[in-house]
Design a protein around this nucleic acid. Structure first.
Lengths: 143, 143
DNA sequence: CACATATTATTTGTATGCAAATAATATGTG
DNA sequence: CACATATTATTTGCATACAAATAATATGTG
């Protein structure tokens, strides 16, 4: 490999960085980061999940989940409640304040997604998503 | 956006994470991280660059460059020398130890790239690189 | 030349991310 | 039931990454 711009790790990193910056800018008015958004998103889908479930879904290390939850809890968007069936575990619940963010945050991130998609043709976008899914999420369904 | 798996930021992050882990594992025998590798790569192309040039090429913040250079310098792979034409600046030079890593590190990262490419057809790989470049590196040439 | 502005590198603070170690609790095997 | 093993969350340490502030030096304008 002669040029670093031919390295997939580098290219993916820079593409990710760009989209991450777009999302960060869009979310900043709510004081939320992209990672905090995706964690909230999983809770909007299903409230009261275990930390290990969130980490599995988001492909994040337990230590990372602990940190993100700490900050969301400090902001008053989620709370940890003891799991009566397993005393090792907390169940993570949205607060009303965390629930209220569902619509506005989805709105701004949808806009970012549309902006990204607009750079490609419909067919390209479909293929792009399929390739990213295959690469990043293993054999779990293509789109 | 109903599912977080339809969010481009999330998909790109997970794909990047996967390739980054592959590179990290491949480079670990040399005690080098993927980011340290790409910085060394730019120096192998042209020795004696300014920090700001490295940051511009790699799309990294000055503070990040300072940190990466600190660690590379501590490992004895690069050294900072004063720029006689501009006393604000250091010029970054490879040490012999840093130069020697060019072949072996390119070898292991080439292998990772081949592994990634092998997941796609030739045409898909070409399109994937083109789309990532367009997204992450702006209007600067598509492969 | 003097002074406002810009550039460069660094420092500090915050937020991911992972590895490894720890502590508490569950689970399985005898 | 007892004990080895596994699971879960957390803590600590390290490595990106960026924003904002700082310090030193260049550059441009008068």
């Amino acid at each position: 490999m002669d040029r670093i711009e031919d390295c997939y790790g580098f290219l993916l990193g820079k593409a990710y960085q760009k989209v991450w910056q777009m999302e960060k800018a869009a979310l900043s008015q709510y004081g939320i980061t992209p990672v905090q958004f995706v964690l909230l998103h999983v809770l909007w889908e299903k409230d009261g999940q275990k930390g290990v479930e969130l980490g599995s879904r988001l492909r994040l290390d337990g230590a990372t989940i602990t940190g993100v939850l700490d900050r969301l809890e400090k902001m008053g968007l989620i709370e940890r409640r003891p799991d009566l069936n397993d005393r090792r575990t907390n169940l993570i619940f949205l607060t009303p304040k965390g629930s209220e963010l569902e619509k506005p945050l989805n709105q701004v991130t949808d806009a970012v997604n549309k902006e990204v998609i607009s750079m490609f043709s419909e067919e390209e976008a479909k293929m792009f998503k399929s390739m990213l899914t295959k690469l990043g999420l293993g054999q779990k369904g293509h789109s």
